[in-house]
Nucleic acid binder design. Structure first.
Length: 584
RNA sequence: GCGUCCAUAGCUCAGUUGGAUAGAGCAACAGCCUUCUAAGCUGUGGGUCGCAGGUUCGAAUCCUGCUGGACGUGCCA
């Protein structure tokens, strides 16, 4: 669609320049999509030129329209130029646009929508970053699906992407679950308890928190354990290895189930010491300073960021120190042009400080760090609170969605039609979840209403999957009867209905949508476009039969259109973690 | 206190970066299955875009103030 916009903006720029006698910049010509399709396909407001022409925008629109109509050059790409109030509206030539779009999608297939705006740039995306003391919850699911989707969108725009995870496998909170396990666990294993490893570990984390209420000395015991861990005490290390493996195996099961994967996994136990050297460098450079007690600080109060500790008085590192180290390490491992941290918005301040500190250390690339601060996931009754047991567990939620999807399959009497009920239900559940989490703008807080998220009707992932499955079904039936339509030819000029034209326009603007999503780092732009496309398709095929048609040319032409819709849906769905289904 | 962010239909969310009569879904109501899957389609009702100013030919969108909310402001992560 951009090519048409650009063509017309250039033409109108030329005409307005000529008519007004002043050279107009291309940026001054604003192209819009009219609010209602009957008003045309492109619209150009003439308000900005009123002072220039010293006349009404309506009159300007008429003068420009008149001049364009005399321009034979433009005739092939428009059907009609008309003045609507103060707007100059263009109706594009439908056969020309349709033919060009269908040919292009047919030729490019999976490539359609890909572009090279980020070609040659290396983008690292950090996301997930789970703790190994408890299983994943709903908040992680938003993080994970955002990280995956953003990565894919960047790739679709030509970037080389490296997805990285930093597993938080050490620290006082890890020791807390270890301590509770040693105290109450009785050497039980996930196998014995028939529990996923991460859930077993999580139980002892919860156990610690109730235990410590009546036994404050447990807090001190955990600190001692952390010290023992840092001193490599064998028993503690052994327990840590064992429980960490349980937790990580469990978390990886959830990743597999939700289609999350990484190119490189960092572990905090291996990186937490990094950063200290950098802090010393900063001391030498005199951008940091040391207090009498030995702690090292950075003063960012001139930037409204206050003073921050970089090294404790006992010389140990902090979260911030580690992040300094890992950033430097990553730049060395894989020199990125951009590093996107997908981390909740509550850590905004932390990343502002981190980026400033790296700049003070003289790292040029610190300019290219970006915190994608996504909003909290809340429940209708308010915040999720682990202490009050209102945290929505990721595995439980998925199980719940899968069983509901399975029930739908039976209720709709599709059990005999789908290939594998269990697998289909799993994919529907995943589609519902990912779509729900991605359709809201990332930076905004969102409310996760379990009752609503499991709906499979309306603006949801399953609706997109359903539309895709319907298309797949039509195409299967076409292939079965293909012989009966031959000989037939694709004739784009046969696509004359408004419904078909709406589809064509949405197909045509898909590549810009993919680009826009990358510019804004916002997968919701994709979800919303795919929803519009599915909606338009549903309207179309409700009223206009594809196969049940007397004219074989029309049949194959509509098949071509339907095929294109499917291609774009598949391309788009792959960017938002909604599995495509041949049958549902 | 200070800082950052948010506020659009009863609920959950969009809103093409300042343009035409602010849109979807859910919920409510009314229709549509001898025809390619009714997880669908069509229609009705529902709005002081938090409030008050300002900038502009034009503001949900930009600026200021206010109100309400979230988050942050740890030698926690």
């Amino acid at each position: 669609m951009n090519e048409y916009k650009l063509f017309w903006r250039e033409l109108i720029r030329e005409v307005v320049s000529k008519e007004s006698g002043r050279s107009i910049d291309l940026e001054e010509i604003i192209a819009e999509i009219p609010p209602r399709p009957e008003l045309g396909d492109l619209a150009f407001p003439m308000f900005p030129f009123a002072p220039l022409f010293r006349t009404s925008p309506k009159e300007i629109a008429e003068r420009v329209a008149g001049a364009i109509k005399q321009d034979h050059h433009a005739e092939t790409t428009y059907r009609k130029v008309e003045v609507q109030g103060s707007y100059l509206n263009i109706h594009l030539s439908r056969p020309i646009v349709s033919a060009s779009i269908l040919t292009r999608i047919n030729k490019e297939g999976r490539e359609y929508g890909r572009n090279s705006t980020l070609a040659g740039s290396k983008v690292m995306v950090e996301f997930s970053c789970p703790n190994t003391n408890k299983p994943l919850h709903l908040g992680h699911l938003r993080n994970d699906t955002l990280g995956m989707s953003i990565s894919r969108i960047m790739q679709e725009n030509g970037a080389a992407v490296l997805r990285v995870n930093l597993i938080n496998d050490r620290g006082i909170h890890i020791c807390q679950s270890m301590l509770a396990y040693r105290e109450f666990g009785g050497n039980s294993t996930p196998e014995q308890e028939k529990l996923k490893g991460d859930h077993l570990v999580g139980e002892y984390y919860v156990r610690f928190n109730s235990w410590v209420k009546d036994n404050p000395e447990a807090e001190e015991a955990a600190r001692e354990m952390l010290k023992a861990w840092e001193e490599n005490q064998p028993e503690v290390r052994e327990l840590w290895e064992k429980m960490n493996n349980w937790a990580i195996e469990g978390i990886e099961d959830t990743y597999r189930r939700t289609g999350i994967s990484f190119d490189r996994i960092y572990r905090e136990s291996e990186t937490y010491q990094l950063g200290r050297e950098e802090v010393f460098r900063g001391l030498e450079k005199k951008v940091f300073y040391r207090e009498k007690d030995g702690s090292v600080w950075v003063d960012l109060s001139d930037q409204n960021l206050d003073r921050k500790v970089l090294l404790r008085s006992d010389g140990t590192t902090l979260y911030l120190t580690q992040d300094i180290g890992t950033a430097v390490q990553r730049q060395e491992h894989w020199p990125f042009d951009r590093l996107i941290y997908v981390v909740a918005s509550e850590q905004r301040y932390h990343f502002q400080v981190l980026f400033q500190v790296l700049k003070l250390l003289g790292h040029q690339w610190a300019e290219n760090l970006f915190h994608l601060a996504y909003g909290m996931v809340n429940l209708p009754q308010g915040k999720m609170k682990s202490r009050e047991g209102t945290v929505v567990d990721a595995d439980d939620l998925l199980d719940n969605l899968v069983s509901l999807a399975g029930k739908e399959i039976h209720d709709r009497e599709r059990a005999g039609e789908v290939d594998d009920i269990r697998q289909t239900a799993e994919k529907i559940a995943l589609g519902a979840l990912n779509y729900y989490l991605l359709q809201a703008s990332p930076y905004k807080d969102m409310i996760f209403n379990p009752a609503e998220s499991i709906l499979f009707t309306g603006n949801t992932g399953p609706y997109l999957q359903y539309t895709g499955a319907r298309i797949a079904s039509i195409l299967r039936k076409f292939r079965e009867r293909q012989a009966s339509f031959s000989p037939a030819r694709v004739k784009p000029e046969l696509l004359t209905t408004e419904e078909e034209w709406e589809i064509i326009k949405l197909l045509a603007s898909y590549p810009e949508v993919v680009n826009q999503a990358a510019v804004e780092l916002n997968p919701a732009i994709i979800t919303s476009h795919l929803y519009d496309l599915a909606k338009s398709f549903s309207r179309f095929y409700h009223d206009h039969p594809v196969l049940h048609n007397d004219d074989p040319d029309l049949v194959v032409t509509r098949i071509e259109l339907v095929n294109s819709v499917l291609q774009v849906m598949r391309n788009g769905l792959s960017l938002i973690g909604v599995p495509f289904l041949e049958k549902m």
